[in-house]
Structures are given as C-alpha cells and as structure tokens.
Amino acid sequence: MPTIEDIFEPHTATASSFSTYEAGDVAYVTNGFKDNGVLGFVAAKPDDRVYEFNGIVLSAFCEATLQIAPYIARGNGGSGLIVLEPKVPLSTATLGYLAAHINTALKWRFNWYRQATTDRIRRLAIPDPIEANVSFPVKEFLPVVSQTKQKKNWEVKFRPFALDELFELASGDYHNAAELPDGDVPLISCGDADNGITRFVSVPPENIYNRKLTIAFNGMNTLTTKYHPYDFATKDDVAICTARSPLKVSTLMFIQLMMAREKWRYSYYRKCFMEKLSRQSVLLPAKKSEVDEETIEIILKSTAYWDGLRSRLE
C-alpha cells in the first residue's frame, strides 16, 4: 500500500482563532466531525493560506474530514490541523473513501498524549486511490455555503420546558420483541444505531405511530431521542411523545438535539422511568412562556445539512 506522503502533500495549517474573523464565504475548518469540521464561514485575512483544492483535513487526533475548496484551517493553540493536498487530482468520492479509511484504520493511533503531526502521519499506509472503485455521491452530502451559514450575532433567550408540558408521554407497547411476527413496520427500541430500529414486525394499526419522537428509558443510551417520520411500533423501553399542540418538524428535531445534552444525567446503572421523564426539562428558545419556533427554524436552517434533511422529514 502507498503511504500518505506518496499520495498527498501535507501542509500545517496556520489560520487564526475563529473569533478573530469577520463573516464571509470561506469555510473555516476546525477539529472534530460536527458539521464536517466547518465551524463557520469567514472572510479570509490577507496572510491566510486559502486552500483552493479539494483535500482532506486532519485534526490533532487524526479526525479526517473531506473539504471542498475554498477553505482555511485552524492552526493556533498548539494542536493545529494538517491539510492533505492530493499530488494528482482525485474525485470527491475517492477523497471521501480515503478519509473514511483514515478514520477507521489509522485514527486509533493518536490521542491527547500522542497527537497527529505531519512527521507522524507521512508514512502511514493508505489504500491506492488508483485501485479504488468508489461511486458513492460524496459531494451531495457535504456542506454548501449559504447566506445563513454565517457568523451571526443575535440574542436568543432560552428557558427550560418540562417534557410533560410539551408532550403527552406514554410507554411503548411491547416488552418482548421476539414474540412479534415478522413484518414491514420498524420496531423502535432504546438503541442508538439505525435510528433505534431493532427489527421489522407486524403489529395491529392501533399500535402504529408516525411522525413522533421516542425517548429511551434505559440501556447505555438513556434519554436518546429519535424522530421517526414514518410508521413505527415501539418496545416498552422507550417513551412515545405526542405533542400537546402542533410543533414544526424543525422544533421536534431541535428538541432531539437538545435532549442529547441531558444524557449525562443517566447511565446503564441509573435508568430513567416515566415519572422522572415527565419532570425532565429541555432548554429551548422562548418568547415569554411559549416555544420560539421561528428562532428554532432559523437556527436549523443555518446548518449546512438542513435542506437535505428536511426533504427526508416532511
């Protein structure tokens, strides 16, 4: 197998802290996978290197993200990024394939105490891109620049809303999934993978739900919240959330995101149950005593993936 330096020319990133930039249309790449590593869109400074090629950006922990030109990459703070420039043109699908390989096969080598540097990553082996046969439409799933994906300064007032204030909460219907006959209705459990779907079953119409949130009571994923824009059935290790008044899809998705911030409260050994869940609150933008759905929709529209996600939800 070739090495990284056989395929790429590594560059050490040099961009300043994100907070020092004005809003613009150049992607600012930082550590992590959130929003594909794009923290926001900025106006590059005169001494910045703006990367005008599609490439791979590695964090200090070897988190690889595929970036589409133009972009700059964070270089300050002692844990700056590494930008991999292809020595010959590579398709976005091939770059995505190589980034996925780095994340699955090489990332484990690095941590807080052994961070990735250009010298450490140069000789790591990666698949030969010439032999890669990749047809997955990677580019369709990458962030795109939009006027809403900018640094914004507006004041959003949050307040906690009890789940019982927003939803009628009910336990799922089935305890033993193995007793249900096979069918075409997704059965939702407390797992995190596959949006909580554990298998496909046949159940009576009165036990089929649609376009609702479920919240896990127990397991390693307690309080994991999932939105299901399709017919589904439930195990009794999740709660079914029926909105007391109509809520926008964007609001439901935002609640799902904000519930993830509360998962630290429970664990496999400290499970949740209906009484606790009804008292659990979620922090949401508010106008006086009401959920500020307009602001929530603006927030979600500012994310790079919302347009594609919304088409699958509505």
Rank of each mutant, 00 (worst) to 15 (best):
D292Y: 06
I56A: 05
K212H: 14
K288I: 09
P70C: 05
R114M: 10
I126K: 09
F273A: 10
G37V: 09
I188P: 02
V134G: 08
Q280N: 08
T222I: 07
P129Y: 11
R270P: 02
L213P: 05
V50F: 01
K276V: 11
Y97G: 02
V249G: 04
S79E: 14
F33L: 10
A100R: 03
I296S: 00
T94C: 03
V134A: 15
S135R: 14
L81Q: 11
I298N: 04
Y209V: 01
V145C: 13
T117K: 04
G196I: 05
L58Q: 09
M220C: 09
N54F: 01
I56W: 06
K139N: 13
R114Q: 12
G80Y: 06
V50K: 02
F158M: 10
Q67S: 12
F141W: 08
E165V: 02
W112T: 11
S311R: 15
Y113A: 14
R270A: 05
T242S: 03
W264D: 00
C241A: 08
L313I: 09
S202W: 02
L187T: 10
N54R: 02
K107I: 10
F141I: 08
E85P: 04
D192F: 03
F136I: 10
A304C: 11
R123T: 14
A69H: 08
V134R: 13
I68T: 11
N76P: 06
